[in-house]
Design a protein around this nucleic acid. Structure first.
Lengths: 205, 205
DNA sequence: TGTACATCAGTGAACGCGCGTTCACTGATGTAC
DNA sequence: TGTACATCAGTGAACGCGCGTTCACTGATGTAC
């Protein structure tokens, strides 16, 4: 609570951060405009100077989440260096790391009910994140014998689904989790087996 | 709205069904005690004769969901007949079919915030469903060369995670979905590749 | 078979609460001259 | 540099709403004799 005058200075972003805190602590339901305002140390009416309503505030949080997500995935992929395979695995780890380090964003993106095609910006950001996965899958695809090469979009959907499933079922909320493995172990092993099934990893390695 | 007298006859179950309808239509948030009561054609106070509160009603819905889920998985597994492999794949399909045909149950179980260890009954039912998957994984495991045989619990977690991920990302809510594949195609292909990675399906088949 | 009575499963009115949102306002800031 | 004024970003009080829940009640049902 730093002292501040009549004007906040950066209320818009402060509200976003309050929302993140509330969401990650109490789930998507545990966030209210009133409480976000309180956390940001302003009156309950102030948020409406920056957002038309509750919906728009959550959407902004999700948008920032998708942007950050896309950045992290791109950084992890690192243009397929040093090798396409290691880059691909790095993307998987980045997925999990994002969910772990930014639970508020993750929940706003995937569990708050905001549809990614709600606004063009949101769609674009979500598309950018997805594009990294598709690009990685395409690069890897080139190494798969054509006969058993799935469409890259399917390939990438599989990895996304497994990652998301692991986050939802084994990484969050439910502590004393359902499996005696860390999410990271689970994903690494799962992706490894999957890639082997595609003939991308030597069967005997 | 059939005519009925002062007594409802089977209000408890009617409330469960009202909850299912509300949840599957409007998400976990779109369910309220008041509206469930209205749907069941009783006053807002009546539900409290059968449930201590909102929480308990949702938990009952989740419980019934886990029971049904376990039944369906067991039926699909069919004791590993005619072959363990086909039985295993049938379980995967049953997972998706359950999510599709019983969205209210699915949401109550996985998205409503009820922890499976909330009550012993719930834990037991959830455990029973999980046990089917573990059993199937164990049976299949026996055929994997020991050197690259993952623990059955991990094996089953992978399949569960992929199934759940597909449901959440590609099967529900988001229509005009994110991928040009049906969830069923996605899961079948994904499980196939995964099993190949374990050496359970012939690489050239 | 008929009656008295305990029990059960509903009703309807009321409560307190917190939420999202609006509105007229006011204090602070920035800009034109 | 100083002043007038438009604009902006806050306030605080108030609203209507629906929700979860409680409570004293009452109608229906089942059982003992």
């Amino acid at each position: 609570m730093s002292k501040r005058g009549y004007h906040h200075g950066n209320l818009r972003q402060a509200l976003v951060e309050a929302t993140l805190a509330l969401i990650s602590e109490k789930g998507p339901t545990g966030f209210t405009m009133a409480e976000a305002a309180k956390l940001a140390d302003v009156s309950a009416a102030a948020p409406y100077r920056h957002f038309t309503g509750r919906e728009e505030l959550i959407a902004e949080v999700a948008l920032q989440g998708y942007e950050l997500f896309a950045d992290l995935l791109e950084f992890a992929y690192n243009d397929g260096k040093p090798s396409i395979l290691t880059a691909f695995e790095a993307v998987g780890r980045a997925y999990l790391a994002f969910a772990r380090k930014h639970p508020g964003h993750y929940i706003a993106m995937f569990e708050s009910g905001v549809a990614p095609n709600q606004s063009p910006e949101l769609a674009k950001a979500s598309e950018r994140a997805n594009a990294v996965l598709i690009r990685a899958a395409e690069a890897l695809s080139a190494r798969i014998p054509p006969a058993r090469r799935p469409p890259p979009a399917m390939f990438s959907a599989h990895i996304t689904a497994m990652s998301h499933g692991i986050v939802e079922l084994y990484a969050r909320g439910k502590p004393g989790a359902r499996a005696p493995f860390t999410p990271e172990e689970l994903l690494e092993a799962g992706v490894g087996i999957y890639l082997r099934g595609l003939g991308l990893i030597d069967t005997d390695s």
